[in-house]
Design a binder for these strands. Structure first.
Length: 217
DNA sequence: TTATAGATTGCCT
DNA sequence: GGCAATCTATAAT
């Protein structure tokens, strides 16, 4: 598999309501070009943040130095540092000036497993076990580390540029059934069912607290 | 200027 | 299950 096997999704894909984008992203591929390595994961969990009308969004109180990418055009990476330890990877949605986004929360590893394991400091057996693979990319901080995504290198990165080191692509695979639940650890708006997961997928991030499922939202 | 909470994870008991 | 790590934003002094 090479970088030329995939091309980035067009900007119009991200120029929609963040909830629609989040749902449509389930089953798509997150592609990271890093030197001679090509790291690819299938998106199995994502959350939508609606910006100025969403108390759970970083953009709710208006633009800051941290969130300014969200106020720019769609299809750009918003990478932030959280809890003093981890990066989280988001994609800007909505038109310029309307700061919606989608947080990528879990991937199913597809390609480049060895460099992902090296980035995570994880030892993979031969063959790797499911728990080992899950520890690579199941969780927003983990997937960002596995793919080598940092704020310094990737915040503001245009995911629709054909030369981008980071982009979203699709292969021929049929999209999975998608289920929605409430978002994880979003205490400011705990009831909005804007977390989307591939039903039954083994790589969904662990949830300590019970979440409210909502198949209709 | 100082305090506290946060879109998390890993290690401890 | 508890909690430390320790950057960023915002609320409280």
């Amino acid at each position: 598999m090479t970088a030329s096997d995939f091309s980035p999704l067009p900007r119009e894909f991200f120029l929609r309501d963040a909830r629609t984008v989040a749902r449509q992203l389930i089953g798509k591929l997150l592609v990271r070009r890093a030197g001679r390595h090509l790291l690819i994961g299938r998106i199995v969990e994502a959350e939508a943040y609606l910006g100025l009308r969403d108390p759970g969004s970083h953009a709710y109180r208006g633009p800051t130095e941290r969130n300014r990418v969200l106020f720019g055009p769609p299809g750009h990476a918003y990478v932030y540092f959280i809890y003093g330890n981890h990066y989280c990877t988001n994609i800007s949605c909505h038109a310029e000036g309307d700061p919606g986004c989608v947080l990528l929360r879990a991937l199913e590893p597809v390609s480049g497993l060895a460099p992902m394991a090296a980035n995570r400091g994880v030892h993979l057996g031969e063959p790797p076990t499911i728990p080992q693979l899950k520890s690579l990319t199941s969780g927003p901080g983990r997937l960002s580390q596995a793919l080598g995504i940092t704020r310094a290198a990737h915040n503001g990165c245009d995911l629709c540029d054909t030369t981008s080191p980071l982009y979203i692509a699709e292969d021929g695979q049929r999209p999975p059934r998608v289920v929605s639940t409430t978002r994880i650890n979003v205490t400011a708006a705990p009831d909005d069912p804007w977390r989307y997961i591939a039903a039954g997928n083994a790589f969904i991030s662990g949830t300590k607290q019970p979440v409210k499922r909502n198949h209709n939202a």
